[in-house]
Simulated assay, not measured.
Amino acid sequence: MTTERDCVYEIQSDVSLFNEESVLKPYGYQVLFGQVAEQHLNCYHLNVDETMKYGYAWALISLEIEKINPVPKCETIYARTWYSQYKRPYFRREMEFKNAAGDLLFHGSSFSVLLDIEKRTIYRKKESPFTSPPPDAIFTIDAAPTFKTHLSFEQTEERKVYHSYIDPLGHVNNYRYGEFAYDAFTDEEKKHLGQMKRLEIYFISELRPQDTFSIGKAYEENKMYIRGHNHMKNDNAFDIVMYF
């Protein structure tokens, strides 16, 4: 019987996802995973058009990846993804990305919830509201949907939400958060991006139209932290951690 892990998808690593050093930008991992997830959910009739028939949409809570080898520029990448666990309210999904030779480039996990479109609340019932494949409890890395730190963040810039950031769910698309983080890099930090070993992105609260937010940075040993703080709600919108 064919399982989710048997499905392999071909995607292209577009040149726009790489920096001047030909290193994949942090949000490039989000884009590559998004391409695969979209194809996969379409195949299993779990895409946004289908879930919205029930009044729900997938909302990404966290994305965590471990880089094994550099991602090649403008080459075909072979990827697979599978649903691995449901611990209310989090749906966990695994991913693997390989080159043409079969070498592992990066792997990781994502956590998502089902968002009630009208009420903006999270689905918390025991059973899924629609039919989906059973979880295949094979995990790629140690991962968790939430993150905490007691570090102090130094504010680097103020920003506001523009119309171009908003997706069909009425909030800032998750890709943008990785872009915000990369924009906060110094020239020296950009030069060392190729040494990144692990990337964690936590989506804490929605950024909506008219919101303003600040970007803060903190450092600890081999880690760099980037935080987005929503001034309109006085809470954190996202946290990003990079391990070097």
Rank of each mutant, 00 (worst) to 15 (best):
A137I: 04
V23W: 05
S112C: 10
M224R: 14
Y162R: 10
T186L: 07
P134V: 08
Q12N: 10
T131H: 13
I240W: 03
E179V: 13
T51I: 07
T121P: 02
F130I: 15
R88W: 00
T131W: 05
L169S: 11
E127K: 15
E94K: 01
G178D: 11
F147K: 04
D187F: 08
D103F: 03
A59S: 12
Y54V: 01
V71I: 14
E200N: 11
Y44H: 13
T81Q: 04
G194D: 09
V161E: 00
Y90C: 03
L32F: 06
Q155Y: 00
Y177W: 09
N222S: 10
V15A: 11
I166F: 12
G228A: 15
Y202F: 15
W82V: 05
I117C: 11
V31D: 05
I138N: 10
E20V: 09
D187W: 06
Y83T: 08
S214T: 15
L24Y: 01
R88G: 05
R120P: 02
Y219I: 07
F153S: 06
E20Q: 13
F18W: 07
R208P: 02
R80D: 01
E96W: 03
K98S: 04
Y83G: 04
K217W: 01
Y165H: 15
S132L: 15
S128R: 11
E10K: 15
A181R: 03
A79G: 14
G170R: 08
S109V: 07
T149I: 09
W58R: 10
E157C: 12
Q35T: 01
T156G: 06
E4K: 02
Y56T: 02
N47C: 13
F33G: 00
S152C: 03
F91Q: 02
T186P: 02
I240G: 01
N47M: 03
A143D: 01
G102T: 13
R227H: 05
Q155C: 02
M242G: 00
G102N: 12
F111H: 13
M232E: 08
Q210G: 00
Y219K: 13
F33D: 01
H163K: 05
G55C: 10
N222R: 14
R80A: 07
N173D: 10
P89D: 09
K160E: 15
Q155M: 12
G216Q: 12
Q12M: 09
H229S: 06
K233S: 09
T146G: 00
Y165I: 01
R120S: 09
E64Y: 01
I201R: 01
D49E: 13
D49S: 15
G170P: 09
F185M: 09
S164I: 08
V23R: 14
K191W: 02
I122D: 05
T146W: 06
K87F: 10
D183K: 14
T212A: 05
A59E: 00
F180M: 12
D142E: 15
Q39S: 13
F97W: 08
H163Y: 15
P168N: 10
L17V: 11
E64T: 12
L115V: 03
N222T: 12
S109C: 13
D239I: 10
H171Q: 11
R198N: 08
I61P: 00
G34A: 12
K67Q: 14
I122M: 08
S62F: 06
Y90A: 08
H40F: 12
L207D: 02
Q85T: 02
Y9S: 06
Q195V: 03
R198T: 03
